[in-house]
Nucleic acid binder design. Structure first.
Length: 750
DNA sequence: CGTACTAGTCTTTTT
DNA sequence: GACTAGTACG
């Protein structure tokens, strides 16, 4: 049976059209991932395309992993040699090989926004620019937009001509780039821009990739920016087999440079493009779709679409307004508990979505009080935690001594008696003699004279060189453990704050787990590659959608996901749509918020609950907000009666009968928990398939008690033989049921 | 050189 | 209200 068999006619058409440019306009819930995966399977199994010639680009690692897994289940073999990756990791992969052509070292480091900020501070200080008048953020945002648009410092200088402010910006941009280059570092935006630069400057390199990627697919095309558009255009220029999938109504990343014209004008750029619309929605009830459609139709320029479903009317939408944000959180938590007690849903069926991360706090508090297991997506990124950044700075220093930022971060962590004066002297010397900071440390004796300070520096240099030597012989996880022990990081944490220390050490434990997982999944694990994977992790990537937990996240993070029950909190004018968008002169800003609302509504499969509070605390001040205009855009007959009253206490009528509310579609998300980032496998080729080293069977079996580093004690439920490893399912006493690979989990029988 | 306090910022969303 | 960066002082 053909892999296309299970698709509907439109989907089939989209999947079977392999040659030439293809634009798939895929409405929310119309099965676009299914089309992409089955299209790929069709290429390999039925059209004789080599997996090696396929490139699939997504925005998040999570999406990439899911796509690979689903393809894997469809094709017999070879899926591991498809290049499935995010824009950023694709570019890193290419730059690692060729960036020396642009004057960088191939083992460059990737700076996160935090690092970029430090560099910017330094630049502004050097140029003696008053940060009160011109805050760093403004420069950084502006530089980021330049890079999204592929504009170089030279372009900006040219453009500025005479205007003082513009010239200042251009000068800062130039200085900032020089600083990065000196540190042998790239920021996130550079990854895309430099790759385009590389392809334009070295056509032979580009051709090499054009010859490899005969078939290119891009997911979430509505969110591409100019640089990404150009990257794809270049790669596809020779063979023109480019298939893009997206939904202009779900374009929600304009603030990050996404250009909605990329999808709206696809047919202008590729006049011979085949355009296919997927309009049948398999996710939501008619009521939910009606609500989504009635909101989005208030937007101007959009591709005409009419989503429909045969799932029936379903339950009405609930709207509830409370007096305070506190009560709002209570109401939501209350409903979730009640539903669950009534056997109508499990915790994992529910997601609470909101506009701003700050809203998560109250919801979290209420969940804790009610004893509800929950997961917050986003907020403070795991990798921006202090302890993680410290350890990573050690690793970066060991890996690439040219990264001044990392060296300076750890030179006095833990305290070694090396102060700001000493660091300043070394940094000045470095700037004057064009040396990087670590080199100056090595020559501290000459620079500072032989004294206490230079002795301390020498000790530090020794320490790093010992680690460097060790790193040649031991694994990354062992290296981390060695560092922790050698510098007594735990002791340092305990001294700083005993209560916090435990949690911080647990986070480091988690980092070690991730290092182990990486080493297991990579062909030839290297420290550089590990560091780059870690740099490109998104909040949503590590989320396990199968755990029975309520999910709390921003509307942005929710894109691409679906849940039986969705709550959208904070439906208030000034919060959602945001105050900024309401005040803006550009009506496009409200339209973007409306698309965000559309995304939120269409996440719901069976039931949608919208809530608002009359007052809430923002920045320590109480604000009184009106009900969101988006609520008024939904026809009142779609709401359950009792709308706008204190409908909290009112029992929802569940007599609609048309739709069974307990149905949990099988297609939600892949089953097994991903061992961290599987991106490394994205680039392995067929060699690996031939050389499968199956783990030896674990020494435990169903019923045995085992111990896990992070989750503590638990009971083994099952042990299944997978393709590369044994997949173990364990019920932990405190953490619930987890599925994991035996090799990564390092379970100990007890 | 290290600590403790203060002032300022943040809150729109993120690879 | 929380966190951070910068400053003054021991």
């Amino acid at each position: 049976m053909s892999v296309l068999e299970i698709l509907n006619d439109r989907q089939k058409e989209a999947a079977a059209q392999l040659d030439g440019p293809v634009l798939i306009l895929a409405g929310a819930g119309s099965g676009k991932t299914r089309v992409l995966t089955n299209r790929t399977a069709y290429m390999i199994d039925e059209a004789g395309v080599s997996p090696w010639n396929i490139l699939a680009i997504t925005f998040t690692n999570k999406a990439a992993d899911e796509m690979r897994e689903r393809i894997d289940r469809l094709v017999g073999f070879g899926s591991e040699s498809i290049w499935v990756a995010t824009f950023h990791s694709t570019c890193v992969r290419i730059l690692r090989r060729h960036i020396d052509l642009l004057g960088f070292d191939n083992n460059f480091t990737i700076y996160d926004p935090d690092d970029s900020k430090s560099v910017m501070k330094d630049v502004l200080k050097r140029l003696q620019i008053d940060t009160k008048q011109y805050p760093e953020k403004r420069f950084l945002n502006w530089i980021s937009s330049c890079k999204d648009e592929l504009s170089t410092p030279a372009d900006e200088e040219e453009y500025a001509r005479g205007d003082y402010a513009d010239e200042l910006f251009a000068k800062v941009y130039r200085e900032y780039q020089l600083s990065l280059q000196k540190n042998n570092a790239l920021d996130f935006d550079d990854l895309i821009m430099k790759t385009v630069e590389l392809f334009k400057a070295f056509p032979d390199v580009l051709e090499n990739y054009q010859n490899r990627f005969l078939y290119i697919m891009v997911d979430e095309y509505q969110d591409t920016n100019t640089a990404q558009f150009e990257l794809i255009r270049l790669l596809a220029a020779k063979n023109r087999n480019i298939c893009v999938v997206g939904d202009d109504d779900q374009s929600i990343y304009k603030f990050r440079g996404a250009n909605i014209r990329n999808i709206l004008d696809f047919e202008k750029v590729y006049p011979d493009a085949k355009v296919i619309k997927l309009e049948q929605n398999y996710r939501s009830t008619q009521t939910i779709l009606d609500a989504a459609n009635s909101v989005i139709k208030n937007n101007g320029a959009r591709k005409d679409k009419a989503l429909w479903t045969d799932r029936g009317e379903g339950e009405r939408i609930v709207f509830a307004q409370t007096d305070t944000a506190y009560e709002e959180a209570e109401l939501i938590v209350d409903r979730i508990c009640r539903e669950r007690r009534a056997g109508k849903s499990s915790f994992g069926d529910n997601a609470v979505l909101y506009r701003t991360n700050a809203q998560s706090r109250l919801l979290e508090e209420k969940c804790v009080m009610a004893g509800i297991p929950y997961t917050v997506v986003g907020g403070v990124n795991f990798y921006s935690r202090k302890e993680i950044k410290d350890i990573l700075a050690y690793l970066k220093t060991i890996d690439n001594g040219r990264d001044d930022l990392s060296v300076r971060r750890i030179i006095n962590v833990p305290k070694r008696g090396i102060g700001a004066t000493t660091i300043g002297k070394l940094a000045d010397h470095g700037a004057a003699n064009d040396l990087n900071f670590y080199e100056c440390c090595k020559q501290a004796d000459d620079i500072l004279g032989h004294n206490r300070a230079s002795e301390k520096i020498a000790e530090f240099v020794d320490l790093i060189s010992v680690f460097r030597t060790q790193s040649e012989f031991i694994s990354i996880s062992e290296l981390i453990e060695t560092i922790i022990k050698r510098i007594d990081y735990e002791g340092m944490l305990i001294e700083a704050d005993e209560d916090e220390a435990k949690e911080r050490m647990e986070n480091i434990g988690e980092l070690i787990n991730k290092a182990v997982a990486y080493e297991e999944s990579a062909d030839e694990p290297t420290l550089s590659e590990f560091l780059e994977e870690v740099a490109l992790v998104a909040d949503i990537d590590g989320v396990d959608s199968d755990a029975d937990r309520v999910m709390l996240m921003t509307l942005h993070s929710a894109k691409g996901l679906e849940f039986p029950n969705v709550y959208i909190a904070g439906m208030e004018d000034g919060l959602f749509p945001s105050y900024m968008s309401i005040c803006s002169d550009d009506p496009g800003e409200i339209e973007e918020e409306r698309r965000l609302c559309y995304v939120g509504i269409t996440r719901a499969m069976n039931r949608l609950t919208l809530t608002a509070a009359r007052s809430r605390m923002t920045r320590g001040e109480t604000q009184y907000n009106a009900v969101s205009r988006f609520i008024n855009e939904i026809p009142s007959e779609l709401f359950e009666s009792g709308y706008a009253k204190k409908s909290a206490e009112k029992k929802p009528p569940n007599s609609t009968g048309a739709v069974a509310t307990k149905v949990r579609p099988a297609a939600v998300l892949p089953k097994h928990q991903k061992p961290f980032i599987a991106k490394a496998t994205a680039f392995t080729d067929l060699k690996k398939g031939a050389d499968i080293n199956l783990q030896t069977a674990p020494d435990y079996g169903p019923g045995d008690r085992v111990m896990h580093m992070k989750f503590g004690q638990g009971t083994v439920l099952s042990v299944e033989k997978g393709t590369r490893d044994y997949e173990v399912s364990v019920e932990f006493d405190s953490a619930g049921v987890k599925k994991m690979f035996a090799a990564f989990a390092k379970l100990k029988k007890i």
